[in-house]
Amino acid sequence: MVIWDHIGMWVAAVLTIAIFSLLYRDNPFYRAAEHLLVGVSAGYYVINYFYASVIRKFAVPVFQQGDLWLLPGGILGLLILLRLSRRTQWVSRYAIAFYVAAWSGYLIPSVIQERILIQLQGTIPPQPGTVPWDAFLGAIIVLIGVISILIYFYFSAPHTGVLGRISQVGITFLMIGFGASFGYTVMGRVSLLIGRFQFLFQELPESLMNM
């Protein structure tokens, strides 16, 4: 480990503690670290954005490989920058319209196929006897759940009578789903804390031993 890595470990430790200090109360050390994070991240990102989009996706193909078909991409990119002036702001609408419409165009068939049709297909239970009984029962539960949730989200008729009772079943499924999400959210957040503690209590002392 070179000296700069050791210094880096200690810088990281100090900054980690500065961020953790928010748990006690808001304080200048936390604020300073927070603002440093914003500045450094923005600097890191802008270099990556610039290299990836302007150099690699525009300058290299157009000027080094002579692919003029990529020229309009650069022009549309320049139009976006016209947002910075109030007088020319409207021109950037072309670039925004291009971006959003292109996204919409390729999204429609993909979403219909992958998020709607295949998911609906997966909701149809298999024929009884072709799968173990518990899997079949599970498939029936999934079918009931999906139908009742879709009815719960159907707002064109009042949720009374049969519709109301079915949508109540939908809410029940949603609550179990939210509960599962909650359990996993706790798991995720705790894992992130474990990562920082592994750094403070395991990696940092190791770095000290190797100095």
Partner: peptide
């Protein structure tokens, strides 16, 4: 973990 719970339907299909 947060994301995993959302992708069970894709695994099932």
């Amino acid at each position: 973990a947060i994301q995993a719970v959302l992708i069970y339907p894709y695994f099932q299909t």
